[in-house]
Design a protein around this nucleic acid. Sequence first.
DNA 1: TAGCGATGTATCGGGCCGATACATCGGGGT
DNA 2: ACCCCGATGTATCGGCCCGATACATCGCTA
Lengths: 209, 209
Amino acid sequence: MLELAILGLLQETPMHGYELRKELVTKLGTFRAAISYGTLYPTLKRLQTAGWITESESDPSMIPPMTSKRGRVVYKITAEGKERFADMLAQAGPETYDDAGFGVHFAFFSRTDRATRLRILEGRRRRIEERREGLREVLSRAGERLDAYTLELQRHGLDACEREVRWLEELITNERSGRAPATPGSLDLPADPAGDAPPVSPRPHEDRP
Amino acid sequence: MLELAILGLLQETPMHGYELRKELVTKLGTFRAAISYGTLYPTLKRLQTAGWITESESDPSMIPPMTSKRGRVVYKITAEGKERFADMLAQAGPETYDDAGFGVHFAFFSRTDRATRLRILEGRRRRIEERREGLREVLSRAGERLDAYTLELQRHGLDACEREVRWLEELITNERSGRAPATPGSLDLPADPAGDAPPVSPRPHEDRP
DNA sequence: TAGCGATGTATCGGGCCGATACATCGGGGT
DNA sequence: ACCCCGATGTATCGGCCCGATACATCGCTA
């Protein structure tokens, strides 16, 4: 999962570890609060060994105050890495239905085709529905056996499931009708006719302010 | 965390691994969907080696159809185990503020004193508030840099945080006024005057139907 | 010039997961 | 009578990821 995230971020611009972690927080907010360095650096090495990323010669992050070179290592994605990234997105199976996997994939939805998006969204919904049913069954079958706190915990969980299913449902219908997720400031797209292109792509990247 | 959960469950009745896992699902619903056997069995051994649990001689789960003995191993908690469990509940620190830890501790709140409950609840609230602020900042600072899907993900996350804070707030005020969590069927307690005893204890355990 | 907080890379031990293997029990089909 | 199958049950292995920790440098302020 982390591999996918790193590959995805490096697709937009080269970065070093520290920066990567920050971007991860920005992109994956809830679903993966913060990636530990104890995972990040070994993973970077793994990706490098595999040939998906390489150390970048020039350090593009030499911005405003930064002048001297320190021990930083800036990585950039390779052609094989891009290939790999695309594969991972397209192959997306059941791992993408659990919390962590879903979050990462969803964050890169704008780089996926509609069919894949729908597959993931529906799988995720299915998964949450199962969890919801499980909770309902527990509450109705074992309810009187549980203490007040446990009951409260389950009820809160059930509520969260119901909300998430509704959220997913909305996303799915939007997706089917060819719309990007409804942005309150509404940058609704004109229902792209090809029906397979990512609905909104971020500005590719511009230098940090 | 798993250790605490196992100790907590065995406190109520002896069990074997398979059964333990089911109870775990029942008690921890959302926060720890299912415990993998690959974790459970090694942990049981660890607990046994440490002396917190022992293999039970008589197999109390020889109920209705079950007659012959199979390879099952029924564990029961030891005196040291009970001590350890109480310690872990009382010492509860920051680990109990993240998702997994909080769920497990909350599920055993009825075995904790009020001071500990409040400490955990408030720590958890703090944690979620921080997460919430992080998301708000991302949305306001980096919002226009992100694509529609990522934005939607963050908004959904923010919403979940806000709900959870409200939920925790309610629990905290209830706790301060000496009430158990409000049960719709309302088994509200009469605001226990000692103020330190668990508000609702589950029926200790009765044979499965 | 000394200290401090942010930046930055790296390792280690340990918890937990998913896949897998293997064995037994009870019930249903043929 | 036979056999297969799904639920029950225990166990191991490789691998991801986390938290703690260590160490070094930069730029600012006292």
